[in-house]
Design a protein around this nucleic acid. Structure first.
Length: 406
RNA sequence: GGGUCGGUGGCAGAGUGGUCAAAUGCACCUGACUGUAAAUCAGGCGUCUUCGGACUUCGGCGGUUCAAAUCCGUCCCGGCCCA
């Protein structure tokens, strides 16, 4: 395997702005990369949800950059750790997932990221590993041995635990073992470096400790910036509704990016595209930030779905949302009668979860039939001349109604 | 094991016999404004409804009461202190 040790390229990766911190030292890692030695890197993710998000994408793209240099890269699926739940997320305390659920969650992952990570490269494909392979086999004696490398005080230092203790929230014993497990992953994979978000540094450090003790090896930690609004510092996350998931359709992905605040444009351009820094600068200087965002959205959709679909998504977006036209393709929903209450239709066509919700939406002016607002909650849809009426709920949900068997 | 405080809607967190389908914040939904911006503002946010109401919900079960998230018993779970 040929290792690329081009200084310019390596510095581009290290200095792009994705990496927040390298432990123990950036220079050391740079020198290693320049040395021509083939290194191994890994990035892990726990399958706690069926979809990866742009935060993952950022890190995976960095992993791919390293793969392209010729280094060995591993994408570790935390199918064992996922069942326990990383305490980094405070709400995750006892959210243990079944192994079936975990499997279901990651079943689509590869599909979501196949365009940003090369799993099929002939010479140097990304390797996928599962940590149940080794974590599931550890004996109690071995776990004790691992645990003896850490003190309770060290674990308590983790700010998450500290916070919970302060707030009189439970900290479960098994949660202390989480950093241990993640650390042991490093040992088994015997990697030179681990990639992770800055919120994972504590766990990654546990791996550094174990590597030093068990393998007498210095493991680097490459910690990446969490994607956050430049101005407000608000993180991209599911809990504040700004998470962008990779299983979205091209149109929805485009829309999800357009709904980001302006402060997200730069971090996303840097982290989730490979547009040159020079061009990014130019994009950010565009007069209307909307145009910068459109450029960003198109680029990201292109990365995940290809140029053609990106083009289409842009057109769809402009037509549907900027010009408020009806989308050209609307799903048909057939009704086996000649008439139906609007409320019942909304529920049947999954445009509302319950009759009460359907009714509220109508009364609040969120429902349109053929672009005309309907506020009468007991409105009845009737068949007329085989015409297919377009029912719209909110800004983005459309269904065509069809009376009769389809 | 003992003492003590606690378990409330997706989350956080008020409420401690009727005025409680349960304050408030976050998330979510609809609308206004816009660039589907963000922010902001207005409304909504258990189910069903003949729009009068009806029914189900405050850890589980049982009880007291005309009336229980609220009181009592019991069980399950957690925090803190002691051992």
């Amino acid at each position: 395997m040929k290792i690329i040790k081009d200084k310019k390229r390596i510095d581009e990766i290290l200095e792009r702005g994705v990496i927040a911190e390298i432990l123990p030292d950036k220079k050391q890692l740079r020198n290693k990369l320049l040395s021509g030695e083939r290194l191994s890197f890994y990035l892990g993710a726990d399958p706690t949800a069926p979809a990866l998000h742009l935060g993952h994408a950022q890190n995976l793209m960095l992993l791919e950059d390293l793969r392209k240099l010729g280094h060995k890269v591993i994408f570790l699926i935390g199918d064992f750790t996922g069942m326990i739940g990383d305490p980094t997320d405070k709400s995750a305390t006892r959210q243990k997932l079944s192994s079936e659920k975990v499997k279901e969650n990651f079943s689509d992952w590869k599909n979501q990221i196949k365009n940003i990570l090369n799993f099929d490269d002939k010479e140097n494909p990304v390797e996928i590993r599962f940590n149940s392979e080794w974590l599931g086999k550890l004996s109690f004696a071995e776990i004790l041995e691992l645990a003896s490398n850490f003190t309770v005080q060290q674990m308590l230092e983790r700010d998450m635990f500290e916070k919970r203790i302060k707030n009189q929230k439970p900290v479960y014993l098994h949660e202390f073992l989480y950093p241990l497990m993640q650390g042991y992953d490093s040992v088994v994979l015997d990697v030179d470096a681990e990639l992770c978000g800055t919120d994972q540094i504590f766990n990654a450090l546990a791996g550094r400790t174990l590597m030093q003790k068990l393998k007498k090896k210095e493991k680097f930690i490459i910690a990446t910036n969490l994607i956050a609004d430049e101005k407000t510092g608000e993180l991209m996350s599911k809990s504040n509704g700004t998470g962008v998931f990779l299983n979205l359709s091209p149109n929805d992905l485009f829309g999800a990016i357009m709904a980001q605040s302006d402060g997200m444009i730069k971090p996303l351009l840097i982290g989730c595209t490979r547009i040159s820094l020079k061009e990014i600068k130019e994009i950010l200087q565009l007069k209307n930030p909307r145009d910068a965002k459109i450029r960003l959205a198109k680029e990201i959709v292109k990365i995940f779905h290809g140029k053609e679909l990106a083009q289409k998504a842009e057109q769809y977006f402009i037509a549907t949302f900027s010009k408020k036209q009806l989308p050209s393709q609307i799903d048909l929903f057939s009704i086996n009668e000649t008439q139906i209450k609007l409320i019942d239709f909304l529920v049947k066509a999954h445009l509302a979860q319950s009759k009460s919700e359907a009714r509220r939406k109508i009364e609040q002016g969120g429902v349109k039939i053929n672009q005309k607002k309907v506020t009468q909650f007991d409105f009845i849809l009737t068949q007329k001349n085989n015409q297919k009426d377009v029912i719209q709920v909110g800004k983005k949900n459309f269904k065509k109604i069809f009376f009769g068997k389809n």
